[in-house]
Computed example of a mutant assay.
Amino acid sequence: MAALKLFSLRNALRSTVAPQVCPLIRMNSLRRLSTESQTVQDASDDPFLRTPEEGLIYAKVTGIGWNTLKTDVINFFDESNLSTDDIKVEYTKAYNPVGMLLQFSSQSAFDLALKQNSRKGRLFKIEKVDRSHWDLTISYDGKAVMLEGLPLNSTIEDIERFLSGCNFDPSRFQTSVRPGFPDPVKLAIVHFMSRIDATNAFCWKNRNFCQNNPVSVRVLQ
């Protein structure tokens, strides 16, 4: 008889307690899943926890010489698959080259360049820069030349006569004067229709005379 009463009491407890406990367990599970989901979402919104996305990487290379060409840099970093359109030369106000800006297709391409530079004796210094640095740097793309040593009193007409026979753009002359010894030096930037036209101007006109001054011609990359 005592066993029968114990069995009835156990059944009564199951019928009254279980329906109340199960919802609590389900509610706690839902709360835990909701919290975990929120944690994952918060992590995805945090830029420090988010997985970096592949995209263009910009870098500045210094340690180049006066005669370093874009093709020299392309061959040096050959594993990164750079093209001439991925490189801009950075010039001073006197148009002396001080570095090159490189545009890499991905982080992995940039990492390959770092490894190659290390393997080859760190010939260049290479560091990341913002895209704004790239956007603000003019690319002459081998279609412009610098004339250096023009007479201080030379006019646009004098420069046009000097460039007679060359296929240049007469609407885009830029002239300036920089300090020099014993006299200031007059410069002119002349734009051409193509790289071949600019190269031809260098071959035909370098060290020719404008009035009585020998003028040096240099192609801007």
Rank of each mutant, 00 (worst) to 15 (best):
M193Q: 10
S176N: 11
F202W: 12
K186M: 02
D183Y: 07
T175P: 09
N206P: 07
F209I: 12
P179L: 04
L187C: 08
I189A: 00
M193A: 14
D183P: 02
F209P: 03
F202R: 14
N200G: 02
F173S: 10
G165V: 07
R207A: 15
S194R: 10
N208M: 06
F173E: 10
F173V: 09
G165S: 08
I189D: 01
G180Q: 09
F181H: 12
C166H: 04
A198C: 13
P182F: 06
T175M: 15
D169L: 11
P184L: 03
P170N: 04
N167D: 15
T175L: 11
K205T: 09
D197T: 11
A201L: 07
L187E: 07
D169E: 09
T175Q: 15
S176H: 08
C203G: 06
K186L: 06
V190H: 05
R207P: 05
N167C: 08
C166Q: 15
L163Y: 07
F173T: 14
N200Q: 10
V190K: 00
D183V: 12
F202P: 05
A188V: 03
F202I: 02
W204S: 15
S176T: 14
G180A: 06
A188L: 12
K205G: 00
F162E: 06
R178S: 12
S176K: 01
S194V: 00
R172L: 09
P184Q: 07
W204H: 14
R195C: 04
F209M: 14
F181K: 13
P179Q: 08
P179M: 05
A198M: 05
D183W: 04
M193L: 13
A201I: 07
T175Y: 00
N167T: 14
L163Q: 08
A201V: 03
K186H: 04
